[in-house]
Amino acid sequence: MRILIVGGGMGGTILANNLARRLKNELKTNKARLTLLSASEKHMYQPGLLYVALGRMSPDELYRDQASLLEPEIEFHVDPVEEFLLAKNQVKTKSGKTYDYDLIAIATGSRPVTEEIPGLAENSINVYTEEAALKFFKTISQFQGGRVVIAVGVPHKCPMVPPEVTFCLYDYFKDRGMLDKVQFHYTYPIGRLHSLEPVSKWMQGEFNQRGITTETLFNMKEVDGAKKVVRSEEGSETKYDLLVAVPAHKGMAVVEKNNLGKGGWIPVDRYRLTIDGYKNAFALGDTTNIPISKAGSTAHFEAEVLAENIASLVKIGSPVRDYDGKVFCFIEAGKDRATYAMFNYNNPPDPKPPTKSVHWFKMAYNQLYWASARGLL
C-alpha cells in the first residue's frame, strides 16, 4: 500500500508521523510505503510570527529541519508537486518525477493574497510571513502616534489573529507610554467583530474597556496610500496613520492550477475528509473547503483522525472515525494575558476572561510545538 502525503506543514507532518507509528510493522515488512513531499527542507512554527512582529521572538526560533521532525520510516523528499492526476493515482513534481500512490493526503496549506486589494500590499503591515513580521516590527518601533486601523479580510489563516494583533499592539504602545497618542479602529467584513459570534461578543467587551472603535460590514476595496485612506466595497472609508492588515487568504496556487477547488480550497467530506469524487484521496488543514477555522489545531485534530482512518484502511479495509470539527485556539489578549476558544461542529466556543496563566501556557506551547509536530502530543 503506497501512501503519499503532499505538504510538510503541521497537518502533513503530524499525519506522517502518526501513520509511521501506527503502521510500523507494515512499513518494516514492506506491506506499506509512506512518502512525504514538501516544498521546503525547513518547517516553520507559523504562530510564532506574531511574536517576531512584536520583537519578542527572533526568526531563527521559528524553524527546524523538516527531516529532523520525521520518523525514520518516512521517505521524505523536498520536491513540490506541480500536477495532481487524481484519476490516475499519480502526482508529478517540480523535479520531473512521477509518484504513484494507492492513498493520498493533500495538506498544502494556504497563502495571504494582499495583492488582490489595490494598494494593500504597499501600504499595510501584517504577520503572515517572516519578511512581513520583520517589517511589522520595524514599522511599529518607529511609529510616533496617530490612528491605527486594523482591517480584516476573510477567509484568513489563524482565526484569532485579528483580536490578538489588536490587543498586543495596544499593550505594545501602552508600554511605550503612547496610548495618549494612539487611537485604535478595527474593521471587519461581516455584521459583527468576528466570524464566531461568542468570540465577537467577548471582543466587544474587551474593546469597550480599551476605547477601541469599530466598523463592521467593511469589506476592503482599495487603499489610497497618498491620502492614507482605506475604502470599502460598501462605500465608506476610514483614514489611517498605520494600517495593519489581516489579509484574505486562498489555498495554494497549485490547487487552483489543477482545478481541485475554487480559491484553492479542496472540497471534502467534513467528517471523513475524503476529496469529493474520490475514495482514496484526502485533504486536511487549511487546504480544505470546510467552513471552520483555518488553524494549526484544526490540522492537528484532522491529522489524528485521518491517520487512524488511513491505518485502518491498510489493516482492515475501512475507516473507523469521523472528524467532529474540533478546534482549539489560544487568544492572546495583550502582552501577558490570554484566553482560549474550544469548539466543534455542534458546540460553539465560550471564551473566558483572559488570565496570565493561560498566557504562560501559550508560551510553553511555543516550545512544545515541536513535540506536537512529531505527533507526540
Results as ranks from 00 to 15, higher is better:
residue 110 S to Y: 05
residue 110 S to Q: 05
residue 113 V to K: 15
residue 115 E to G: 12
residue 115 E to Q: 14
residue 116 E to D: 15
residue 116 E to S: 12
residue 117 I to S: 00
residue 118 P to G: 04
residue 118 P to W: 03
residue 118 P to Y: 03
residue 119 G to V: 02
residue 120 L to K: 02
residue 120 L to N: 01
residue 120 L to V: 09
residue 121 A to H: 09
residue 121 A to K: 13
residue 122 E to L: 06
residue 122 E to A: 14
residue 124 S to F: 01
residue 124 S to T: 08
residue 127 V to D: 00
residue 128 Y to P: 00
residue 130 E to N: 09
residue 131 E to A: 14
residue 131 E to I: 08
residue 133 A to F: 04
residue 133 A to R: 01
residue 134 L to Q: 09
residue 134 L to N: 03
residue 135 K to N: 15
residue 137 F to P: 01
residue 137 F to D: 09
residue 138 K to L: 10
residue 139 T to Q: 07
residue 139 T to Y: 06
residue 141 S to A: 13
residue 142 Q to R: 13
residue 143 F to K: 02
residue 143 F to T: 03
residue 145 G to E: 04
residue 146 G to N: 10
residue 147 R to W: 01
residue 148 V to M: 03
residue 149 V to Y: 01
residue 149 V to G: 01
residue 149 V to F: 00
residue 153 G to Q: 00
residue 154 V to Q: 05
residue 158 C to V: 13
residue 160 M to A: 14
residue 160 M to P: 02
residue 160 M to F: 13
residue 162 P to V: 09
residue 164 E to V: 10
residue 164 E to C: 09
residue 165 V to E: 03
residue 166 T to R: 03
residue 166 T to G: 09
residue 167 F to P: 01
residue 172 Y to C: 08
residue 172 Y to R: 03
residue 173 F to Q: 04
residue 174 K to G: 09
residue 177 G to I: 11
residue 178 M to K: 05
residue 180 D to Q: 13
residue 181 K to Q: 14
residue 181 K to M: 08
residue 183 Q to W: 00
residue 183 Q to A: 15
residue 184 F to V: 05
residue 186 Y to G: 08
residue 186 Y to L: 05
residue 188 Y to A: 02
residue 189 P to D: 03
residue 190 I to S: 13
residue 194 H to S: 11
residue 195 S to N: 15
residue 195 S to Q: 15
residue 197 E to N: 11
residue 197 E to H: 11
residue 198 P to Y: 04
residue 201 K to S: 11
residue 203 M to K: 09
residue 203 M to Q: 12
residue 205 G to M: 09
residue 205 G to I: 08
residue 206 E to I: 03
residue 206 E to M: 05
residue 209 Q to P: 07
residue 210 R to W: 07
residue 210 R to A: 09
residue 211 G to W: 10
residue 211 G to H: 07
residue 212 I to G: 05
residue 213 T to N: 08
residue 213 T to H: 06
residue 214 T to E: 12
residue 214 T to V: 14
residue 216 T to N: 15
residue 217 L to N: 15
residue 218 F to Q: 05
residue 220 M to R: 02
residue 224 D to F: 10
residue 225 G to V: 07
residue 226 A to G: 11
residue 226 A to R: 12
residue 227 K to A: 14
residue 228 K to Y: 12
residue 235 G to I: 05
residue 236 S to A: 11
residue 236 S to G: 06
residue 237 E to P: 00
residue 237 E to F: 07
